[in-house]
Design a protein around this nucleic acid. Sequence first.
DNA 1: ATGCATCGCGCG
DNA 2: AAAGCGCGCGATGCAT
Length: 556
Amino acid sequence: MYVVLTRSNRGVTALRLDDAGSVLGEPEGVAETELPAWVGRVERERPRWVWDDSTRWYPALLAAGVRVERCVDLRLSHQILRASTLTAASALANAPLGPWDNATPLAEKAPASGALFDFDVEPATDAPTDPVAEFALQREAVAGAAEPGRIGLLLAAESAGALIACEIKAAGLPVRADVHEGLLAELLGDRPRGSERPARLEELLERMRAILGTHDVNPDSPAELLKALRRGGLQVASTRSWELKEVNHPVVAPLLEYKKLSRLQTANGWNWLDTWVADGRFRPDYVPGGTATGRWGASGGGALQLPKQVRGAVVADPGWKLVVADAAQLEPRVLSALSADRAMAEAGRGDLYEGIVASGAVKTRAEAKVAMLGAMYGATAGDGGRLMPALTRAFPQAIAMVEGAARTGERGGTVTTRLGRSSPPPGEAWRELQEGASVQGASDALQRAARTQSRSWGRFTRNFIVQGTAAEWALCWMAGLRGRLWSLGTGQFADRPHLVFFLHDEVIVHTPAELADSVVDELRAAASEAGRLIFGGLPVDFPITTAVVDNYGQAK
DNA sequence: ATGCATCGCGCG
DNA sequence: AAAGCGCGCGATGCAT
């Protein structure tokens, strides 16, 4: 059963549909204040909740202690169906752009002015978006797809992700401010007053000034710093750390240390703590489907860049543990499954990179890693490029897959992940340049620019199929895990083992200590299940590493 | 004062 | 010219 929720100026309307999408009975009005209790009651029938945007409905339910098992997030699903090559012939994909094509979450849009809605006419159909009609269109699009199971699984996983994102934010990542401050003090010195530099940075700056013989260089200004370095005799074109590392000069060591610590201070220092950590929890916004490839985005506090330096401040509550798990070498394994490359699947029986060494393609594990990254990102030069021929000989099917995706992108075409997320077409400017360069007598410069742009888009589509399918695996992993964690405990959401962090191929579960071992089992079971769901019977393993720890810094 | 591009660097 | 993908964010410096 489905229950479609619609919110209008009159309140909430609920409409039940059977599994075939046929309406069951009359729409039911529910007062906003009664909604959590009402949803909680109906949830016992295990419906799939259908709503425009999970961020508009679920946070309030969670705050009221109501957890739902599953939903259809119409906005996220629409985004996928609109672009997918699997549903390109559908009415949905061929309709003109409408309110469902707005890229921003509905919750972020300014609320409609009340005056406009004072007319007392048909509120449900006057709503800017009609979830009932949209849901019907979406079901039709899925049913008409060549392989409805693929796109259907993607929509279910994406919608589960939408619930998970709300839950992770509601639960928050446990961060101990006192521990974080201790780490900062250790590395930077005492907290400075006002906008002064911390003691350790001031000290390094003095040393740099003495070595360079200047007293007024601002190291935080790349332009100024570059001038000062050149005056000091360093032959550098930029102030990037990797470039400085190549230079032999006494100022380099203190400068690199300054940069490292300065970065910590500005990105995750005391100010970060004051701004983003409250009541012992870090609660950024997670944005499912926030990137072209289907990976999540995040905003607020740099959630997806939490540096290793401060992970020790992520501490489990007393009596609880953190279970940190990540999928080992996820992307290359996804590539071997996508391409059904048996040789690569065989190499991935254990450590994939060691397996590639054993296959004889390359000599060392480090080379294997660089070669695989090069294949997935489209390296043409450097070590990655150099190792490509050997990799191609050893794993022709896998390499053919990414090369094919690259060629498609270079022509301006679209590629699609395993479950059906399609890459966006290049923009108008891209096509104009390609067309301009293809006419008789186009200048060499124009042709070169067009080729560079074409290759660049090819690298994007090459990576898209791998990164995007890996994101699908991760979503299925988490969706399965979420149900398993719920079954492990009792009580409300945050009393049971629950997800508190997600980073592309890595999760953190916060769990009562006595359930930590069971959580590890469920993590593994969910990983195997995700592989089977997406790739069926292919002999590709998706091993995960796990660590049961008191703080995140102890993992890895 | 505010917006925007650039640099640089953190994460996967 | 970090070879090669996807992000978010803060400081700077210039434009408005």
